[in-house]
Design a protein around this nucleic acid. Structure first.
Lengths: 202, 202
DNA sequence: AAATATATTGAACATTGTTCAATTAAATGT
DNA sequence: ACATTTAATTGAACAATGTTCAATATATTT
């Protein structure tokens, strides 16, 4: 059989990625199988390979959507102009998302491409965009400061936040400690340090 | 054929893990195959399964050794008593190791166990031991301070360092930025922040 | 209505981790 | 010295994986 107008190519891709997210959400990336996705959307495996280059390509698209979703929810945070407050609000959103989508979040860094195959540009851009969010919240600390320095400190905080979320999701934090408690100390102390540095400059 | 006294069980395990490290080092965890390990040590796949419960067990042991090696090289760092200097020395060692063993380091967090299978205790302990190293360097900042607070701040720095190493190894840092430059800012600023907080307490 | 184009299928393939009865060599007993 | 027991080693066999592609069935176009 061949059904032509059941679903457009775009609809099929959407269905496949939805199925992939669902499977990943409750079985983890390890439990994701091409045949299972096909079965879930009512098509065969051949059709799946008509939509994606290969399994890695499918996973990249799925993980790309996870990054998009994280970006979307973080960019909704309204910045008040107070760096500490704004950074905390951003971090809280970030952690809220990674907790609510643990398996999908884990999939983002569990997946690797085979040797010699580069991460596509459209994917790298999604990662880069996430880091820019942090810079906006930090900016007030550097009135008239050069953007490179702001970006640098934004990367410090962002990569740290990333590490905390990761360690928490791997359940490697002792009782009573959470990514949130770590982030609170990080932001509070780091912002204090930045202000202190600035005093030294004057 | 069955050779009994060619190698002891311990020797075989050692050979198998060495082979696994070597393959992982130049092909990544993705390229690690049970049959390849067996071939490399001159035995068949059946023997490999006599040494390890299954492939996950083999990977856990390999990654455990990577954690051990990281711990060993970091614990060699001589602490001078100056927190900033000591933390930087520790971080440098850490990053030196993760750069020199990128693939093996990546393998540590790329690997996950199937759903429902818990990380063994002996493995979790290796992770926990690593975090204690940081606490020793931080201690001078909290004369007579309670150990829990020191441990907390050690975790902040350690998880941050972890995130930076990870982002660097995933090659997601822009030109000119390195994990080392990020760590320098983190430690310098964070320690300044801690001193500032202390002033507020007096 | 015939011809063309293409979405869809599913059998087939190489490779994977895993199992286990058969085999062979060492250790032990007589 | 030989027979018996023990266990390390083998490799064929299995189910499941990602991947391919000629055959097929349905739209679309002529």
């Amino acid at each position: 059989m061949a059904r032509r107008s059941d679903h457009t190519r775009e609809e099929l891709t959407r269905m496949a990625l939805d199925a992939a997210h669902a499977i990943t959400a409750d079985e983890g990336l390890r439990g994701l199988r091409a045949r299972q996705i096909a079965r879930d959307i009512g098509y065969t495996i051949g059709t799946l390979y008509n939509l994606f280059e290969d399994f890695d390509d499918l996973i990249l698209h799925m993980n790309g959507e996870t990054l998009d979703a994280l970006y979307r929810t973080c960019s909704e945070v309204e910045l008040k102009g107070d760096p500490t407050e704004d950074l905390e609000a951003l971090a809280d959103r970030y952690l809220e998302f990674t907790r609510g989508h643990q398996q999908q979040w884990s999939a983002v860094f569990e997946h690797t491409l085979p040797r010699g195959r580069a991460v596509p540009d459209w994917y790298s851009e999604k990662v880069a965009k996430l880091m820019e969010l942090e810079a906006r919240a930090l900016a007030p600390l550097f009135p008239g400061g050069n953007p490179d320095r702001i970006a640098h400190h934004a990367r410090v905080l962002w990569t740290s936040l990333f590490g905390m979320a990761l360690v928490e999701s791997a359940e490697r934090l002792p009782e009573g400690e959470t990514a949130r408690s770590l982030v609170r100390s990080l932001i509070g102390t780091y912002v204090a340090g930045l202000k202190d540095n600035r005093k030294g400059e004057l």
